[in-house]
Nucleic acid binder design. Sequence first.
DNA 1: TTCGTAGGTGAACGTATGTTCATGTAAATA
DNA 2: TATTTACATGAACATACGTTCACCTACGAA
Lengths: 192, 192
Amino acid sequence: MNKSSKKERFLEVVLKLIHKKGFKATTMRDIAQELNFEVANVYNYIDSKQSLLEEYLFDIQDEFHTAIDHVLASTHTADKKLQQAISSYIQITTKRPYEQALLVNEWRNLKEPRLQEFVERRRGYERKLQAIVEAGVKQGQFRALDIEMATQTILATLRWLYNKCLHSESIVNPIEIEKQLIEFIFVGIIKN
Amino acid sequence: MNKSSKKERFLEVVLKLIHKKGFKATTMRDIAQELNFEVANVYNYIDSKQSLLEEYLFDIQDEFHTAIDHVLASTHTADKKLQQAISSYIQITTKRPYEQALLVNEWRNLKEPRLQEFVERRRGYERKLQAIVEAGVKQGQFRALDIEMATQTILATLRWLYNKCLHSESIVNPIEIEKQLIEFIFVGIIKN
DNA sequence: TTCGTAGGTGAACGTATGTTCATGTAAATA
DNA sequence: TATTTACATGAACATACGTTCACCTACGAA
């Protein structure tokens, strides 16, 4: 068994446990029990409970940043850029729904100074998305809407997605999700 | 000082404290300190930490149910009903943003059997909203969209609102918010 | 005046929790 | 063969937490 696979299994099992019980409610003893060994051994895998959370959160946050940076670097029009940003968001969420759930629900459990770092980076992501929306309005592709509110609303429609991935009976198809969400965001629900 | 005002003040101060620190992270000693008295005295106001959370959550949940029941009982068309449902949601959120924040962020801390009760009631709310969306599709006012996904997406756009109420520098105007959100949900962001 | 009640105190209790340490073992490496 | 490394154990620790108990004080009602 190669070295990394054991730690990877550890992280995967613990991720799901934390998702189920919540970070604060998951004790080191819970983690040990889930993996069928003793508490002390948990510290052969991680430095502390805090660092465990940090590992998950900053890792998935990085993935989101990389994705939107890639979109921003392209030369497409704003509406196409927004579509790509949404598409990449959906892809990450469908691929890593548990990490995304942590990102949404457990970031409050970070402690300073990492908490501030996290919030700033998240704000950075929002600003990048907002820049796309703003460009779309200026270029006349989007209606003259409240830019910040539109951005936050778009993000809100994306943020609940992990729930569907985790609770849906059938496997979630990112292509179909994308089609639905893009339609919702771009032309709303009214006919015509 | 009349009897109820003291408990009301207690609940209001503690609500904000729990919002700031998170329910699990807020200790009985934190609560006591915030109110300038000793821990033991907290139990003259509430039965337990759990019951405190229950009080907040079921109270605000009731308010949402009452509001949507009122909309469902009306004889308007589906699109008008949806608009009213959204409007009432926004009114509650702007009036009680801290309770709404708890509803979104802290419900996981409920314990059985109240947790199940809460989740079922929430599901009930979602079904009521979904019924409106479904009627709108059947009557041809809305596009032929995935009904459950549309419902969840609409809810998602509403759920983040408390953030704006709590973090915005200026006072949030529910009328303006409603106008923006209805537009977003009904006709999207694309021009024409 | 007596008495119940609302509001407040200080000390303590049992338990849960994150973390450390000394120690052990089997396998990989040198 | 000798030694390091990865993985594992059991016991203990200091601390933090929710809750309880016995007791105190002020005050409006009876």
